Simulated scan of single mutants.
Amino acid sequence: MEGGLAPLGGGILGLLDFVEQHEEAVEYDLLTRGFRLREFGNERHDWRDLWVLVRRLQVEPGTALRHAVHGELWPVTDQLLANIVDALNHANWQRVGKKNAPKPKRTPRPWEKTKAQRIGADPIPISQFDDWWESKSKRR
């Protein structure tokens, strides 16, 4: 399970690290099932119970934990429809026959990172900010 519970360290500490990383999603999914996070770690609900719930919740469709761990996932039918739309757009673009016509853009998939324009760079340390600010004002 990529990004899930398996790659983390074993035992209770690995579970607690995972829960800490995705605390809001874990709490929400537990609340919708009638549990509270604070109820675990005792005789009634031991750590194994929490581990089993978290392990299942991260692969169950529609849970907040699955979305937090794996991001938005499309069903196979939606993926196929996006591929069909892309193929039709590309075929129509080819049939137009105009060399200057812009190539159609691919239907965005939520799991793919966009190639957005990045403005700026890494943050400037406070000690260098004044010099940077002055150099920008002199250019005007």
Results as ranks from 00 to 15, higher is better:
E134K: 13
S135I: 01
P110C: 03
G4E: 05
P108D: 02
E23G: 09
V96C: 12
G71C: 04
H90L: 07
Q94A: 12
G4A: 01
L65W: 03
I12G: 06
D122F: 04
E24T: 14
V69I: 04
V69S: 09
W74V: 06
P125Y: 03
V76M: 06
L13H: 09
N100M: 09
R38V: 13
D131V: 13
L57R: 05
G120T: 08
P102E: 06
R55P: 00
D131Y: 11
D17H: 11
T114C: 07
L8E: 04
K136P: 00
N100I: 06
L53A: 04
H45K: 11
Q117V: 14
V19G: 01
L88P: 00
R56G: 06
R56Y: 09
L30D: 02
K138P: 03
P125I: 07
G9I: 03
Q58Y: 00
A6V: 02
S127D: 14
F40G: 08
E2H: 04
L80C: 07
L5N: 00
W51Q: 10
G11T: 04
K138E: 14
V19Q: 05
V85R: 08
E20I: 04
G4I: 01
V54Q: 05
D122L: 09
D130Y: 11
P61K: 07
R38T: 15
E24Q: 11
N89W: 01
L50E: 03
T77E: 15
S135R: 08
P102I: 01
V19S: 06
G41C: 01
P75V: 10
Q21W: 10
T32V: 08
G10Y: 03
W111G: 11
L8N: 02
Q128E: 15
W133N: 10
P123K: 02
E2K: 08
E23R: 15
T77C: 08
W133S: 11
G3D: 10
Q21N: 09
K98R: 14
L88D: 14
W51C: 06
E24N: 06
V85E: 12
A121D: 15
K105L: 13
G62P: 04
F129Q: 15
P102V: 00
L88E: 13
P75D: 13
T77N: 06
A64H: 11
R139N: 09
P123Q: 07
A82E: 02
D29V: 00
A91L: 13
G3P: 06
N89L: 07
G4N: 02
R118P: 02
T63F: 07
H90P: 11
G120I: 02
G41Y: 05
P123E: 01
I84V: 13
K115R: 14
L81Y: 00
H90F: 15
I124S: 05
R95E: 14
V85W: 07
S137I: 13
V96W: 02
H90R: 11
D17T: 15
P110V: 02
T32Q: 15
T32F: 00
K99D: 14
G41E: 04
T63M: 00
R38Y: 11
H45N: 12
